[in-house]
């Protein structure tokens, strides 16, 4: 039997790791009573991640295991990160389109109507800037149009 799949972990190592885990548990509880402000969450999650790493590397013996198993596990963890990160990119910026509540939609419409009315007050001749704004046929409007064009 080859060594990579059947590594026997010495009892001493297991007990040491267990000691480390208990220490970290006590530590995280103790730290929870220290007012860390915004650091509280990262510290708690960091300690938990350390504990989880210990369990994975030694209790689950991933350190001595076939690399493909480690790769599998890593990809799984990366996917969880992707899931959390990309969802939070949305939830952190939610509403950056502005307030789209129905009430304000009505207000927006009223504002737009007002703006439109204001725009209608501007004489249409002033808004003609491009050749396309002038009628193709030289009918009744032709005189006025060419007059604008000249000025």
């Amino acid at each position: 039997m080859s060594d990579d799949g059947h590594h026997i972990l010495p009892k001493a190592t297991l007990l040491k790791v267990f000691g480390g885990l208990i220490f970290l548990t006590v530590l995280t509880v103790a730290v929870a009573y220290v007012p860390l402000g915004p650091l509280a969450v990262p510290v708690a999650i960091g300690i938990a991640a350390t504990k989880a790493t210990l369990v994975v590397l030694y209790f689950m013996a991933l350190r001595y295991d076939n690399p493909v198993n480690a790769l599998t596990f890593t990809i799984g963890i990366i996917m969880v990160m992707v899931f959390i990160t990309f969802t939070m990119i949305d939830t952190a910026f939610r509403g950056d389109m502005g307030n789209v509540d129905r009430q304000t939609m009505g207000e927006i419409e009223r504002e737009q109507e007002a703006a439109q009315q204001q725009q209608e007050q501007i004489p249409s001749e002033q808004l003609r800037v491009a050749p396309a704004d002038y009628p193709d046929d030289r009918g009744a409007d032709a005189g006025a149009a060419s007059g604008d064009g000249d000025s």
Binding site: G5, G76, M79, V80, T87, M88
Partner: peptide, 27 residues
């Protein structure tokens, strides 16, 4: 063993949705 590790990552992803829900509502 590889099968078991694959099964374990399905478990991790099963829990991940709840972790996402936690993270979002905590945020």
């Amino acid at each position: 063993k590889l099968g078991m590790w694959l099964f374990l990552i399905t478990e991790i992803l099963l829990f991940s949705a709840m972790f996402v829900a936690y993270a979002v509502y905590r945020q």
